[in-house]
Design a protein around this nucleic acid. Structure first.
Lengths: 195, 195
DNA sequence: TTATAAGCATACCGATCGGTATAATCATAG
DNA sequence: CTATGATTATACCGATCGGTATGCTTATAA
């Protein structure tokens, strides 16, 4: 790993939480300098623009979330347990290495949908792949006779994502994690209703 | 109504959609000038700061949403129908005079939760009052024997809000209103499950 | 060990940021 | 119709914005 690659990774690691809390428009190059301890010049030596850093930071934050879920899922054998991983993970948010500032998909989606096509594209892709993963999981469960046959996999998948993201948003702005936990109970009900 | 009051209302009306699409940090005073056709000086003649305009704009956008719901609810007699107003309204988003840029609660919450205490406070209050309205409605339904007695009103209310906000977010970033409609079907199921 | 390039800091660019002092213009009560 | 205060525009403030040109300082392959 070259020096440049290491510095680049270092910058991403340090600035990702800043972008995820302050947002794209709310984050200045100066913020990136402060977060890394590097000067503006050295940041622009490794990235071509603020956009460039922001996109890499989003990818990093998203990876972090996906790693948590993937890691927990690998411990499960049944489809039901795999689906319940989401409940577990988002119910115990703080126990996992989650990105500072909450869910990057939620944050990036709401900021970028009207303002930043490239970031929006990434958030869009993240949602679609999440949804497809859920649909695949549910269909697998149906095939394995773990879940009922008459399930609308697509509708269920989108509802689960909406509940999770909505729950995160509510808990974050109210400062009450109990709201997130309440929503996760609804997610659990919904998942157990698939059996 | 004095000239000043009319101008103030005019500024709010014209800038509210700008704040709701570009966000607080992403909106400049120059944007406000362009949106109103007024110069910076005259905006600061009616408001003390950018914050001042932003807060008023949020209130305006929130009012707009609440008016739609209130107006539709007044046409309903049963609690069930009143609850289903949310499904109807958010399913047919485009047919109602909704604020440009989507749900102001969602937009403001995700941007301001880590950055802007005053805006966050307002978004927080909006969520809580929405939740309380739902809880009140559900409890009324239980008392009137319209709904089952064993309902966890609080949990149901939070779940409905989470579904709606999550659904809006997903639909907005993907550009597929069908996702929002799918989520609203889940909300309808949830509500009909209360009977 | 030394040549050479890659990596980083300093200093600067024009533009725009939020905000204000002051002058011109307008509405309105007497 | 005029006086007066309220309202709006002009012009400007220092600070910060994203970005860059230019050197100094390192890492690294020969």
């Amino acid at each position: 790993m070259s020096k440049a690659a290491r510095t680049k990774a270092f910058i991403i690691e340090k600035t990702a939480p800043v972008f995820n809390t302050k947002g794209y428009a709310g984050t200045s190059i100066n913020d990136l300098s402060e977060a890394t301890g590097l000067t503006k010049g050295s940041i622009y030596g490794n990235f071509t623009s603020k956009d460039d850093v922001a996109l890499a930071a989003f990818d990093y934050n998203l990876q972090k979330v996906q790693n948590v879920v993937k890691s927990e899922m690998s411990k499960c054998t049944t489809v039901l347990d795999q689906l319940l991983v989401y409940v577990n993970v988002y119910d115990n948010f703080e126990k996992f290495p989650f990105p500072l500032g909450g869910c990057p998909i939620l944050n990036t989606s709401t900021e970028a949908d009207d303002t930043h096509p490239e970031l929006r594209k990434r958030a869009n892709a993240a949602i679609l792949s999440w949804k497809n993963a859920l649909v695949g999981l549910i269909e697998k469960g149906v095939k394995m006779k773990e879940l009922r046959a008459q399930i609308d996999a697509e509708q269920t998948a989108v509802a689960i994502i909406a509940l999770i993201e909505g729950g995160i948003m509510i808990a974050k702005v109210t400062g009450k994690s109990s709201f997130r936990k309440a929503v996760m109970q609804s997610v659990e009900k919904m998942i157990r209703g698939l059996v």
